[in-house]
Amino acid sequence: MNSGSFRSVTLINSLAELSRARAEVASFIDGHVPEMDASHIVLSVDEAVSNIMRHGYGENTDGVIILEMYSSDGSFKFTLSDTAPLYNPLEKISAQEEPADGAEGGFGIGVYRRFMDVRYEVSENGGNRLILKWEKNNENNESD
């Protein structure tokens, strides 16, 4: 376990950055969690970043997302900070809500809420901060 590890990545508001975000997360957790849990973590962060880009910043190409990754004693924490208009995704959909027939959106937030403990807060600079925490003993994890 890479106890106490930390990495920070700055993403610009471009969906082309999603691949880099996934690669950074995969690299950070590589070898420390079972394969399927790793897949869920990468997917969760991808969904959260994508949501900020599409619904937070939208067309604002000056937008930046700071992805900070922490590991400690078998747990991982991912903090996403942005300066998009205030938006709490946790007020929008539950983790178990099933998307309606034909719906193109509404899948992602439920996914990361299922696999991660998620908290939203307004940051010190007035922006959004989404905190996703993965615990080894989460009931939905493969490692249980």
Binding site: L18, L43, D46, E47, S50, P99, D101, G102, A103, E104, G105, G106, F107, G108, V111
Partner: peptide
């Protein structure tokens, strides 16, 4: 990701 599955859901 969900974006791809959303497209498939709409296509369905």
């Amino acid at each position: 990701s969900s974006a791809g599955i959303g497209v498939l859901n709409a296509i369905l």
